[in-house]
Nucleic acid binder design. Structure first.
Lengths: 150, 150
DNA sequence: AATCCGTATGCAATAAAATTGCACCGAACT
DNA sequence: AGTTCGGTGCAATTTTATTGCATACGGATT
């Protein structure tokens, strides 16, 4: 993991659709050598995967919301049951069990408020193990990184 | 935007490193036709970009934390000042201005607790406009999707 | 129903890229 | 100095992407 590797990873975190030839040129290696590095990074699992990122605005899921959830019963099985429920929802894009102020934090991507209301019914109101939940609607997204700083 | 487009988008959200030939075969199109669709999806901005996702465990940033921040002064310029500060931090992977319980929510990716402590100094303790902040350490990640359900 | 138009398709030819074998280089170690 | 190992560039080969072209499909219009 040297300077060139880091350079490649930074390139590919920004745009992985470039050709190997192109990137090789930018980092100052021959295409073959560059390709072998990229393959190594993938084989070693440093590059987990390469994916297409869709434009959220074009997908219809334009409303983002954060929800903190407090459970009544905190046992492992209760936590697992709720997380399973949440994870199964398409509108739930992130779900974390956390320490501190609350038990679970969800990140939602919603099409509209109807979807939010219906989701709340399924995840919170119809459940017996929910003590409280607080919703924070996202007003402004200042940063939303898939890239990891090296 | 038909069934085949959606199929392609789902494929590429999971793995965009496959060859066009391969994906064309899976969706039942000729390579040329499939390629033209993918180019159209990119040109229209439905596919925003293609990126490499690194393994967080291999990057050293293994601790995830959520922080809610309450500001003392809520004016636009105060909000902006704090967000600018937060966004500049490498450990801050997401930053949202929100309604409700609090003003700002941050998602942190940390190497260790020292980094957390130092970050708190810079973002919270040294600042005059922070009323309170609550940290929730992530115990379990049940879902963390870059993909958007269509 | 016939026509027209815009768009999508498959095929085949071509261009470009990825992949591999091979010889070589340089650092680390004996 | 000799040896080993990992990485490199070059060139040949294979695979893929790209494009031109003829055709097929669907919708709107006459």
């Amino acid at each position: 993991m040297d300077r060139i590797d880091r350079k490649l990873l930074n390139l590919m975190q920004r745009d992985a659709s470039r050709t190997n030839v192109d990137m090789a040129d930018e980092v100052g290696l021959s295409p073959s050598s560059c390709l072998r590095r990229i393959r190594r990074l993938r084989k070693e699992g440093i590059i987990d995967r390469v994916v297409a990122i869709l434009n959220p605005a074009r997908s219809g899921r334009v409303i983002k919301a954060l929800v903190t959830v407090e459970l009544k019963l905190h046992g492992e099985q209760h936590m697992r049951r709720f997380l399973d429920l949440a994870v199964a929802e398409e509108a739930v894009s992130q779900a974390y069990a956390v320490t501190g102020e609350t038990d679970v934090v969800l990140v939602l991507r919603l099409r509209d408020m109807e979807e939010y209301d219906a989701l709340c019914d399924r995840l919170f109101r119809d459940q017996t193990n929910i003590a409280r939940f607080f919703t924070m609607m996202v007003i402004r997204t200042a940063k939303d990184e898939t890239a990891i700083a090296l």
